[in-house]
Amino acid sequence: MNPSAMNGTGSACRAPSGEKQHVSVRAGNLLLGIGIERIQEINRPSKLTIVPKSPSFVRGVMNLRGEVVTVVDLNSILKNRKTELTETSRIIILENDGEKTGLLADGVGEVITFGPERIDPVPCHLEEEDAGFFEGVVQLEERLLVLLDVDAVLGIEEIEAGS
């Protein structure tokens, strides 16, 4: 009931200059950026229950404080290989369509802040079939940060699960 609490939600994570914060996520040799506002939380992989007959990119389901959350494997989606669970593996909890989904990645790095002017279009050397999952690239000092289109990644079921 407090009127001051009715501010919009999206604006909080936006730096005043229009710069946006991205969490860098590792999938194989790719460094991916996910907008921080899309991330609910980041966890170490806990016990996953394997779901029989599930699409190949689904790693299993996990118990996130009483909620059953599907965990999809980022490497399966982008690289067509299963993520190996290691010390650095993380599950990034994202929300899409009011549903939480976990994204299993090889690791999570620092938060990178940059403005929209630094985002370049996806270069053509990225494999074509994956390009649909990317929103753009940002040239960092040492390497390239590829911005992940979270909705495209989470929306993958429409393409594959039906087949």
Binding site: K47, T49, V51, P52, K53, S54, P55, F57, V58, V61, M62, N63, G66, E67, V68, V69, T70, V72, D97, E99, K100, T101, I156, E157, A161, G162
Partner: peptide, 27 residues
Amino acid sequence: VKPLGKHLGRIEELAGATILGDGTVAL
């Protein structure tokens, strides 16, 4: 009973999921 996410909704053999006493998810 907890619902399964959209990626798993089409699996005919499963009706949902639940969390067992030890915290693991069972289908």
